[in-house]
């Protein structure tokens, strides 16, 4: 079946697939003209004597789409003629494209990875997971049937998540209005986004300001649209999400509250099951938390089932909240 017979429009995936094949097969790379005039999906529209601006734009978009999938599409400067765009060559080096030979997964590991992918059922991460699973299936390992079924789900409901995630990927500075917990006026922040972290069920942005000071923002308190400033930044040393998690954990560990709970109540059962909770000798619960204002909201929900003993600022915050709710609902 020679491809010349296909005069109908070539589907996008066939053009992308042919481009990947052509660039994997070439040692020295292909110039843009060689690609547009010979590769399936482009050559059908190539004008040997005229202007191929549309086709060139299509090629630019295709390159982005392919790179987004983790395919290392390289540009190589022509030796002896650097800076001449017409002579740039494109290739996909096999070693950087193929999964290293020592990376393989057992049936057990495949089962766990299937679950890990299932966690993302919303937003762009669900597409990433779906594609990761296809690549995993490619290795031909069959997953074990799990003993107990799991349906895990991490939600990505904050409107700021997707634009921040895209900016992170492009290492683009972002700007947004942020209402800090406990403050009544929002302020505009301009930061380098470095990682998105879910901690205690809430999404956080870990970022650096223009002086390189790390900041953590709660996504649900980003109250404007997220815009990019047009500036990009160089990648930072170190695993940023690990640093971010470590900072959040440090804050969590350093904040300790003592509360009395009504025995047998909802507060007793649920706060007792919180991570890191210790029952003190007095019968009080020793609890950890990240932010006094957010934790005060949570404790206020338990009404008379909870009495905050310390620290004083948490106690005051809970009292203020209960009084506010009572006042807002007074008849």
């Amino acid at each position: 079946m020679p491809p010349e017979s296909s005069t109908a429009k070539v589907p996008v995936e066939e053009r992308l697939f042919s481009l990947v094949l052509a660039l994997l097969a070439t040692e020295n790379g292909l110039t843009k003209n060689e690609i547009l005039s010979t590769v399936q999906g482009y050559r059908q529209s190539y004008d040997h004597s005229g202007d191929n601006a549309n086709l060139e734009r299509k090629f630019e978009r295709d390159k982005d789409d392919i790179r987004e999938l983790g395919v290392p599409l390289e540009t190589v400067q022509a030796p002896g003629d650097p800076g001449n765009n017409q002579n740039l060559r494109y290739r996909i080096p096999r070693g950087a494209y193929e999964l290293p030979v020592d990376v393989s997964f057992s049936a057990e590991e495949t089962t766990v990875l299937n679950l890990a992918a299932m966690v993302w059922r919303e937003g762009s991460l669900s597409a990433e997971s779906r594609r990761a699973l296809l690549k995993l299936r490619s290795l031909g390992v069959t997953a074990d049937e799990p003993v107990l079924g799991y349906a895990p789900r991490v939600r990505v409901r904050d409107a700021a998540f997707e634009p921040l995630s895209a900016a992170l990927e492009k290492r683009a500075w972002v700007r947004f209005s942020y209402l800090k917990p406990g403050e009544s006026e929002a302020r505009v922040r301009t930061v380098k986004p470095l990682a998105l972290i879910q901690h205690q069920g809430r999404w956080h942005l870990y970022a650096h300001d223009d002086e390189g000071v790390s900041k953590t923002f709660l996504l649900r308190r980003v109250i404007s649209a997220v815009s990019t400033t047009g500036k990009t930044f160089e990648p930072l040393e170190g695993n940023q999400s690990e640093l971010a998690l470590a900072e959040l954990e440090e804050v969590w560990n350093s904040h300790v509250a003592f509360v009395e709970v009504e025995p047998g109540s909802d507060a007793h059962t649920r706060l007792g099951k919180r991570r890191g909770t210790v029952v003190a000798q007095t019968g009080e619960l020793e609890l950890h938390y990240s932010d006094v204002n957010i934790f005060a909201d949570e404790l206020a929900g338990f009404g008379p089932e909870v009495l905050v003993v310390s620290p004083p600022e948490l106690r005051a915050a809970v009292i203020a909240r209960l009084e506010r709710t009572a006042a807002d609902h007074a008849s």
Partner: peptide, 9 residues
């Protein structure tokens, strides 16, 4: 051989 994962994947 099978392709690598993207960083995001």
């Amino acid at each position: 051989d099978s392709p690598r994962f993207s960083a995001r994947e």
